[in-house]
Design a protein around this nucleic acid. Structure first.
Length: 804
DNA sequence: ATCGAGAAAAAG
DNA sequence: TTTTTCTCGATG
């Protein structure tokens, strides 16, 4: 019988990133299992913290006095054997703490914080009692909320032993309950009661019959009302008469759609059929094979996904389908739900914490076999996974940009191996990394070269904005684009306009002295917001009024440069007054559900033109859109990022696919100042193959991924010199430990050197084969631990998405 | 000696 | 992350 438990505690530091041994109290033996959340006393003050049981022991291999587990937070483990292993692997791989990884895999509500209370245990004078304790003998203790004087008084009382601190770990993971009714008696007993009823007691009679029909079950009152056609008050009568009991039943907050319509698998074309066949074969034979499904927009990838999932379900297995958050639209969700009905659980950022928890529980209990969701859905607690799908696998949102900095693709690969389940990576424009692996035969390539319905790809024309500018006054719209927009308006068709915001901002600059208004906290220019009439910093949220004159030379010629969606909208309304324009950007979609609402309005033809940022590029499917305009295709190209071309190519290809998906022919107009750039020219013809070859060649010559692995190490400090100095010291330290043919770039200040009053310096390590990297970096994280007290922050990002 | 602030160390 | 302990200068 296990007497001890190994526990990872919720103290995210390097030195506590290991299991601690605790004694299992007698009353909890048999109940404690690995993967459970528990409350344990930790540290000198034995404050209570949350922890995860990761193992059980019969004897102690620790020579010190053990503390005991305080209590359980659940009766069942929340992490199974697989997820516990995954957490460990993830922690190692991303240089994150195990506890951080564990919380990342679970719904937010399980991250409970410890509350502290101050308890009076001795007499104090009236004044103190009143001032500090508000006349009560227990108060919530939040040191950072209190001023220094009160705090020192309290600490003094504590030293004198007059107050003590107590702890409470609040469990926020609560299932929502509603009242239900349960019959208390047997069929015969109800029959006897019925005989004694007065003749006019119709409702009671009806209730008795109803109770007889639901013997030994519990039914929610709301449902019971419907089923029996009775009013709620009669159940209360029934309770008083002892016929039934009212008890709380757990319900799911998840808004399961009422739409019960189901669709059927579509007939597949030749290439789709081959893809489904190969994937199904791997599903049937438990092969952890990775497929790269390449197909232009509109080639029917989704149908391949759905039929492959159906195959996994047939085999009694489960499936995960990952999509970028942005394409997790109602259209998309409906499609999956119509195919698989209540077997589907959806996880996305639009759900409240409670709703996410409920969806998670449905998955965990095995009530849902198909999980659709964004990045974190890759951790869905499904058992017996038969297939994992990752749509738009090149999307950067699959990489988390805070710790643990994991890439969902890597996690998917890991789980695919664990379960012996195939992984399908789908995209029209795969990441170079994945495409290169397919080339090498590590992944199996599946091609969908044809658009379904054999529609031609839209005609893409590129407008040279340099020429435009020479001919007309400065404008966001070329003559071609304006003509095309007017044309659609006349025909009652719709248009989509995309403003590429990547690497772009509408900043304000003085035309006389060149002064640019910047954030006082961060080294980046402030962005103009016309709706609030302020200048805002997009990094720290700093806000200030729009200047009337240049703060530097007092000239009045301080003007806006660059373009925001609002400005474009204003120009559009002036140039085409008859058009109805819907704007979709971070500002108009901040409120929950606005994203969907705008799309729905556009789908209902409430507007002629949808104007937005990148978020409109993906996953939408409006049959009446026949024109897509890209206002500024090249702003991303100017970024100091070796992936700039790749991202531009992907974005343009994606957005072009939005035009003319139904029976109407589509047209795409791309405005650019770099009409000869290869990324733009090749996107014009959707020539991924050629782009791949060219870009791979460039990466090869530059020594970039996928030819090299990369790791970014960042250091920050409030003082610039400190950050630079420490980064240099770390660089020298690392250089001695890594392989001689590994390359360190830097140290350099980051592109935005100062954010939130901190300075950032970084290095990038490039390597091909290096046995020492992992251990060197782990050792580094351990030894720099003590620096955090001196105001340093150090982080590691393996395979970063953006650098330089 | 005593206090208090701040750094350092330890956490089963 | 939080708590206790250590250290050190200021204070009486």
């Amino acid at each position: 019988m296990a007497q001890m438990a190994q526990i990872i505690v919720d103290v995210p530091t390097m030195q506590t990133n290991q299991p601690y041994t605790y004694r299992i109290p007698d009353e909890l033996t048999d109940q404690i299992k690995p993967g459970m959340r528990v409350v344990v006393p930790f540290g000198r003050g034995s404050r209570k913290v949350q922890g995860f049981v990761v193992g059980l022991d019969e004897q102690v291999d620790f020579d010190g006095t053990l503390k005991s587990i305080d209590s359980l937070l659940e009766l069942h483990p929340v992490l199974n054997e697989e997820l516990l292993q995954l957490a460990q692997w993830l922690a190692k791989k991303t240089f994150a703490f195990q506890i951080t990884c564990m919380f990342t895999m679970l719904p937010n509500v399980m991250r409970s914080k410890t509350k502290r209370f101050l308890h009076l245990i001795d007499e104090v004078d009236e004044q103190t009692l009143f001032d500090l304790f508000n006349g009560q003998n227990e108060i919530l203790f939040e040191p950072d909320q209190l001023d220094a004087k009160t705090l020192s008084q309290l600490l003094k009382l504590k030293r004198e032993g007059k107050v003590e601190v107590t702890y409470q770990v609040a469990n926020r993971a609560k299932a929502k309950t509603m009242l239900g009714i349960t019959p208390k008696l047997s069929f015969e007993q109800y029959e006897e009661i019925r005989a004694t009823l007065p003749h006019n007691a119709h409702s009671q009679n009806k209730l008795l019959s109803y109770l007889q029909s639901i013997l030994n079950t519990t039914v929610k009152i709301a449902d019971a009302e419907q089923q029996s056609d009775l009013k709620a008050n009669i159940f209360t009568t029934g309770e008083h008469k002892g016929w039934l009991t009212k008890d709380p039943v757990e319900v799911y907050r998840s808004p399961s759609s009422k739409d019960k319509t189901r669709d059927h698998p579509f007939e597949l074309n030749h290439h789709q059929a081959i893809a489904v066949e190969k994937i199904s074969h791997a599903v049937n034979n438990d092969q952890a094979e990775t497929f790269l499904l390449e197909g232009v927009t509109g080639s029917g990838k989704t149908e391949v996904y759905l039929q492959s999932i159906a195959q996994a379900l047939n085999k009694g297995k489960t499936a995960i389908m990952l999509v970028p958050e942005i394409s997790l639209t109602p259209q998309m969700v409906t499609r999956v739900k119509q195919r698989f009905g209540s077997a589907v659980a959806v996880l996305h950022s639009g759900l409240s914490n409670g709703e996410k928890y409920d969806e998670w529980r449905r998955i965990e209990k095995g009530e849902a076999q198909v999980v659709v969701g964004a990045r974190s859905a890759v951790f869905a607690p499904l058992k017996n996974i038969g297939l994992i799908i990752m749509d738009e696998e090149h999307e950067t949102s699959y990489k988390q940009d805070e710790t643990p900095r994991y890439h969902a693709r890597d996690v998917a690969l890991w789980r695919s191996k664990y379960h012996g389940a195939p992984l399908v990576l789908g995209s029209a424009t795969p990441s170079l990394e994945s495409r290169a692996r397919a080339q090498k035969g590590v992944y199996q390539q599946l091609l969908l070269p044809d658009r379904i319905n054999e529609q031609p790809l839209p005609i893409v024309s590129v407008v040279d904005m340099r020429k435009e500018l020479r001919q007309h006054a400065e404008s966001n719209f070329s003559t071609d684009l304006l003509d095309a927009l007017n044309d659609r308006l006349a025909r009652g068709e719709q248009s989509i306009l995309m403003l590429n915001r990547r690497g772009y901002s509408s900043f304000i600059m003085c035309r006389d002295c060149g002064f640019v208004l910047k954030c006082p906290n961060c080294d980046i220019s402030l962005t103009l917001h016309m709706d609030t009439h302020t200048m805002k910093c997009h990094y720290c949220g700093h806000e200030e009024p729009i200047p009337r004159q240049c703060p530097n030379c007092h000239s009045a010629k301080i003007r806006y440069y660059g373009t925001g969606t609002q400005k474009v909208q204003a120009e559009l309304e002036q140039k085409i007054p008859a058009a109805n324009v819907l704007r979709m950007d971070v500002d108009t979609t901040r409120r929950k559900g606005m994203h969907e609402k705008i799309l729905k309005q556009f789908g209902n033809h409430e507007a002629d033109i949808l104007l937005g940022t990148q978020m409109i590029a993906k996953g939408l499917d409006f049959p009446d859109v026949t024109l897509v305009g890209v206002l500024n295709a090249d702003t991303g190209l100017g970024l100091p990022d070796f992936r700039a071309s790749e991202h531009t190519f992907q974005l343009l290809t994606q957005v072009s696919g939005r035009a003319g998906r139904a029976d109407k022919k589509g047209e795409v107009i791309v405005q650019t100042f770099n009409p000869d750039h290869y990324a733009i020219k090749l996107a014009q013809t959707q020539n991924f193959e050629k782009f791949f070859k060219l870009e791979m060649d460039l990466r090869h010559r530059g020594g970039y991924p996928p030819y090299y692995y990369t790791v970014q190490v960042m250091t920050s400090h409030e003082k610039e010199a400190q950050a630079a100095k420490k980064m240099l010291a770390i660089t020298n330290w690392l250089r001695k430990r890594i392989a001689p043919d590994s390359i360190i770039l830097g140290p350099t200040p980051q592109a935005i050197a100062r954010v939130n009053r901190r300075y950032y310096y970084q290095i990038v390590i490039k390597y091909k084969q290096d046995q020492n990297i992992q251990s060197a970096l782990t050792e580094m994280m351990q030894s720099v631990q003590k620096l955090s007290g001196q105001g340093f922050q150090i982080s590691i990002d393996a395979e970063p998405q953006h650098f330089m």
